[in-house]
Simulated scan of single mutants.
Amino acid sequence: MTRKLGGGKLVIATHNAGKLKEISALLAPYGLDCISAGALGLPEPAETGTTFVENALIKAEAAAKASGLPALADDSGLSVAALDGKPGVYTADWAQRQWFEGEPGRDWYMAMGKVEGCLQALGPDAARDAWFSCVLAIAWPDGENTVYEGRVDGTLTWPPRGEMGFGYDPVFVPTGSELTFAEIAPGEKHKVSHRADAFAKLVADQFGS
């Protein structure tokens, strides 16, 4: 039987204020007081896993042990079938500028270009099927944990389209739509995204009757 979250504080294992706001809003109806790992001054663990599940658990377990509170972490990314699932867990790394690519930081247009370059190198008939994955991991200080996996399938397009998304959203067209994630209003995207899928499973398991 899955262990349930009670009321009270829940550490969101992130130093990203935007992610804290998004997750807090999703969990607000369930009586949880969300606080970020960053606000608690917790260090960010090295994400050494080779899967989304491993990295989500690394972050959640580190936050739970350091804070003495239950913690929630997510790990997500884009996988491209023709590229054997890449960039996958290295989704953000593909956006990281090298020393010869400008100022340190992430350049998502560059990352999208890298994916497109890899596909074009395979030839004009390369399949453009792709999917976004999201894993949510809950960990308790005593070492118990549980995970929820979400996914949305689609295809990649080029050039990028839309201004409302982030990351690889401007090149991802979810199945059943003609718009990229960056052309879909955030409220609509949240209904069909990989994160929405994972959260629906978490809510049903943790707070369902």
Rank of each mutant, 00 (worst) to 15 (best):
Y90L: 09
W131T: 06
M112N: 09
A127P: 07
S79A: 10
T155E: 03
G88N: 02
E61L: 08
T155P: 02
G105N: 13
E163V: 01
G150T: 05
C134H: 04
P45E: 11
C34G: 12
P104M: 11
D142E: 14
T146K: 14
W158F: 04
W99L: 12
I35P: 10
V115C: 03
G68Q: 12
I58Y: 13
G105E: 14
G88Q: 00
D107M: 14
C134R: 05
G41L: 06
K86V: 00
L78S: 10
W158L: 00
N145R: 11
P87A: 03
A139F: 06
C118G: 10
A126G: 00
N145T: 15
W108M: 14
L136S: 06
A73R: 08
V115M: 02
A92W: 01
I35V: 15
C34K: 12
T146C: 11
E163W: 00
D84I: 03
E144R: 11
M110P: 05
P104A: 13
Q98M: 06
R151F: 00
A46M: 10
A73G: 08
D74K: 04
A92Q: 03
F100M: 12
L69D: 12
Q96R: 09
T48A: 15
G49T: 05
C134Y: 12
A127V: 07
D93R: 13
D93A: 12
S133H: 04
G162L: 03
R97H: 04
W158D: 03
L42H: 13
E103N: 10
A127C: 08
P141E: 03
D142P: 07
D75Q: 03
P43L: 08
A82C: 04
G68N: 13
A66Y: 11
L42F: 12
C118M: 14
Q98N: 04
G143N: 02
V135D: 08
T146M: 05
E101T: 09
Q98Y: 05
G105Q: 08
N145P: 02
A39L: 15
